[in-house]
Design a protein around this nucleic acid. Structure first.
Lengths: 341, 341
DNA sequence: GTTAGCACTCCTTTTAGGTGAGTGCTAACG
DNA sequence: CGTTAGCACTCACCTAAAAGGAGTGCTAAC
């Protein structure tokens, strides 16, 4: 593909992204100074269409990029304007102001939607590799204890658990002691049957230990659960491709289902880094008119979660890629850099 | 207003609610057996229009209820079909399965939206009158402690707080001791300056105490904050009155703003019980094409929060009123009845 | 290889006419 | 006097036809 054709493809894509209208040869000639006449551009456009980069909604309309066209634009033509250090700094500050992991994640999904003006999704970090920093029972009444868990980094959760029999203060202290000794510093993912078995052997009072394990298992279950957050769903309604309310409803319904969003974002978890999925490249039914920009973020060098932005295929990739990249980068630094709490 | 006119108003309202189409005299005569001819109904309808209960979108269309008509329908004509004991039981079970207050509230807003098929809003209970059941510091590292608070009923929250200087284990224990002795059982709202002052006097180590108070104040702040949840916003898009996407966007934008929702629901907190707000009765700009069904729920006989459903003025009041009432009732029983955790 | 000219396509908007649901009015009926 | 049949009238909605216009592909000339 020669230089001029590239320029034309780029111009068509840019124009279509910003106007949502098929672009004609005249417009290109006028708006983007290529120094050639509309007729010449028409010839090149015909070639580009033949090669599958452009398509025509109907014979007498302008051209729009095909998926292949977008793909080429994303991979070769565009140059995402990276966020400035100042912008990164602002995001970092906004996130750092949050106390708990959940708030950090919620703030980042909010920012992502706000900045991109599309719909943002974030899966909260998987803390399987997090280390237990504090695990403690606090007795509340006869049958309830509060199980408090602090995981490094940034995760504190308490949960009320029902015991199957009243525990004495002494028993509670004993369990706490064990937790402290055996589990402090342990990585969540390692608390598998083997460690549990070890602990079991270490205690004589069978009933008490089974109680403690029971509590632990119950409490850990929903801590390991990965949570998904989305924000900015409403921005979809501003896109002309969703002026048809049925289409919008379809997509919004999918976004309402956590499992769907989760599985979409998890595709991104596979390989680390930025990833752009365009239209039917997306295997998820219902997302095939959309594009997805996703990125993973890390904790101590390990991928622990992913973030993403959904929009129509006619998405402002240059902007969104920069934002998603910047956000993922900021999240990673925030999580890894300061082992805050 | 004579009996027949009431029947006609009721029929028009019912029909319009279910079809969203203006209702003609012929339809009434055919579908609702009044035993009179369309001409007679036409006469009565003209009277009803004169009196302001009905209106005509244009001269050659059927009638639709005016706001006054809806008001009369809600206050006099309709009879909400109360939820069955079985249904209440189901809701109760679903809520009771939740462990933490936040989950209870989220589950109830989800149910409310699901059952009503409109948009549901819930403000989480104000726990100012809740009693402290457990308040404890757990040291994490040099400059961070975990402040754990359990309030009766159903509220457990932990928060990581930064201390201004490292605390020794002994100091922590001392603070905990004080918290235990002075605050256990105290009502959150009462922890004002007076009680804080008292505590201050009771400790000799000025620096330590100010540290403890500082922690307490920081920790309590966001616990007292009232949270708002909404769900089912997408249902709005199914309503023909929001087929115009701009209208839908306007309302959805309002619903995205917590403060707006909060202030709408707080109107309901004023007087306890069920309340239906129709169209322009709603003082909130942007909600004036909508109706609102709200109710308060209680904790130990005291109003602590409210729930609500938003929909078009052409809302199925009979159904929604029953659901909102049932849900508020269930929430109240759940909170008051069992002092669970 | 590039460009001007031109016929052609086909979407979009406008206009006009027809259709039908529903009304208000009048006059007749019990 | 309330009720009803009959009828002219209104007006949104639908459909078809006409006008308009943006953009193309092709051809021939530069």
């Amino acid at each position: 593909m020669d230089e001029r054709k590239r320029k034309i493809l780029k111009a068509v894509t840019r124009d279509y992204i910003s106007t949502a209208e098929p672009v004609g040869s005249r417009t290109i000639a006028r708006r983007y100074g290529l120094g050639v006449s509309p007729a010449t551009i028409r010839n090149d456009m015909a070639d580009l269409e033949e090669d599958g980069y452009l398509e025509q909604p109907h014979t007498s309309a302008g051209r729009i990029p095909s998926e292949k066209g977008y793909r080429f634009y994303v991979d070769v033509l565009m140059k995402p304007q990276e966020l400035t250090a100042r912008e990164i700094q602002k995001i970092f500050a906004a996130l750092q102001a949050q106390q708990v992991m959940q708030d950090i994640v919620q703030e980042s999904v909010r920012l992502l939607a706000l900045l991109s003006q599309y719909t943002a999704m974030v899966v909260a970090p998987n803390l399987s590799r997090g280390a237990i920093r504090c695990l403690q029972l606090i007795p509340l009444d006869e049958l309830h204890v509060l199980l408090v868990l602090v995981v490094d980094p940034g995760f504190a959760q308490s949960r009320i658990v029902e015991t199957s029999r009243p525990l004495t203060a002494q028993e509670t202290a004993r369990i706490n002691h064990f937790f402290q000794r055996r589990l402090s510093g342990a990585v969540l993912a390692d608390i598998g049957s083997s460690l549990l078995g070890e602990i079991r052997e270490e205690i004589d009072d069978e009933a008490l230990m089974s109680e403690a394990l029971n509590l632990l298992v119950k409490g850990l279950k929903d801590i390991k659960k990965e949570q998904v957050f989305i924000d900015g769903a409403i921005h979809l309604l501003s896109q002309p491709e969703f002026k048809d309310i049925e289409k919008a409803k379809g997509l919004l319904n999918m976004l309402d289902d956590e499992r769907t969003v989760w599985s979409v974002l998890n595709k991104a978890l596979g390989r680390s880094g930025m990833q752009v999925t365009i239209g039917s490249e997306n295997l998820h039914e219902g997302f095939q008119d959309c594009s997805l920009v996703t990125a993973t973020y890390e904790l101590n060098g390990e991928v622990v979660g992913s973030i993403g932005v959904v929009g129509p295929t006619r998405m402002d990739y240059e902007k969104v890629v920069a934002i998603v990249e910047g956000m993922a980068y900021t999240l990673s630094s925030l999580l890894s850099d300061s082992r805050r709490h």
